[in-house]
């Protein structure tokens, strides 16, 4: 069974139809990269999948449990307990990190495990330290976000998302807000997660990274999936003109 299954997802903002029927599956251990030009609907897709936006139609299921199900054109969303159970399946890393500025690195990471998952503080801290060492930030647990570089902040944000043991982790352009010299450290961390077979869906503008790390690449254009496949196929043998143009302009 697919970890994530999206069927015919549609979403409009006013008259502007941003998603025009998106369907795809993510299997366990897969690293899916979503590429496409700005305004192609990549971020909206991610926001619908993570329940930050409500879909107009279509369905989204995690491990066969529906976050939203389309029943004869009516959107039926999961409620309360069901919803929080489904929500525990995924994590999201934002473009702008969105760390809590008033909490230290450690407090940022254990906030949800302690208060949402009701984990004991000691246990949560132990886990947080493991994650921080994976991220190469062991010395920063008492620092506050404003004391960290963008790359460090993003790595903390990844640790914060991982602390809840999500089955699938979404990244919304995780390096777009970073200075070029800081993107490498964040990409390296994501690459390590991919090596460990963490299931991930990554919206990114880093073409080389998508090509090297992803097991599956989705090219979105004007609200639809225009082309998808293995990285080699997509990058070296693009079939559609639009993908060719896009790759050309991304000057890979």
């Amino acid at each position: 069974m697919a970890v994530l299954e999206i069927k015919d997802l549609k979403k409009s903002f006013g008259k502007n139809e941003v998603l025009k029927g998106i369907s795809f599956c993510v299997q366990k251990g897969q690293t899916v990269a979503i590429i496409g030009s700005s305004g192609s609907g990549k971020s909206t897709l991610l926001r619908c999948a993570t329940n930050l936006e409500k879909a107009d139609s279509g369905s989204i299921a995690y491990n066969g449990e529906y976050l939203v199900l389309d029943i004869d054109g009516q959107q039926k969303y999961a409620q309360k307990e069901e919803l929080s159970k489904i929500r525990s399946n995924f994590g999201l890393v934002f473009q702008n990190f969105n760390l809590f500025p008033h909490l230290s690195v450690m407090q940022n990471i254990i906030e949800a495990p302690v208060n949402v998952k009701k984990m004991s503080k000691a246990e949560a801290e132990k886990k947080a330290r493991e994650l921080l060492s994976q991220m190469g930030l062991s010395d920063k647990e008492n620092a506050y976000p404003c004391e960290l570089s963008g790359g460090q902040q993003q790595r903390v944000a990844i640790a914060r998302a991982l602390a809840l043991d999500p089955e699938v982790l979404f990244f919304d352009e995780p390096t777009s807000a970073l200075d070029p010299e800081l993107t490498g450290e964040v990409l390296a961390v994501i690459r390590k997660l991919a090596d460990k077979n963490m299931t991930m869906v990554i919206v990114t503008h880093e073409m080389a990274f998508a090509r090297d790390v992803a097991s599956h690449v989705i090219f979105m254009d004007k609200g639809v999936i225009a082309e998808e496949g293995e990285p080699k196929e997509v990058f070296y043998n693009p079939k559609s003109q639009r993908l060719q143009d896009f790759l050309h302009s991304a000057s890979l």
């Binding site: 930050l52 994590g91 999201l92 934002f94 809590f100 906030e111 949800a112 208060n115 949402v116």
Partner: peptide, 29 residues
């Protein structure tokens, strides 16, 4: 910022937790 609410939301926090644990301390400052 909206991002603070969204971060709380994807971490599974409920509205009360987001307001009292995330928003209010920052508002206070």
């Amino acid at each position: 910022s909206q991002g603070q609410y969204e971060a709380g939301q994807v971490l599974g926090m409920n509205k009360g937790q987001i307001f009292f644990r995330i928003v209010l301390p920052q508002v206070f400052k």
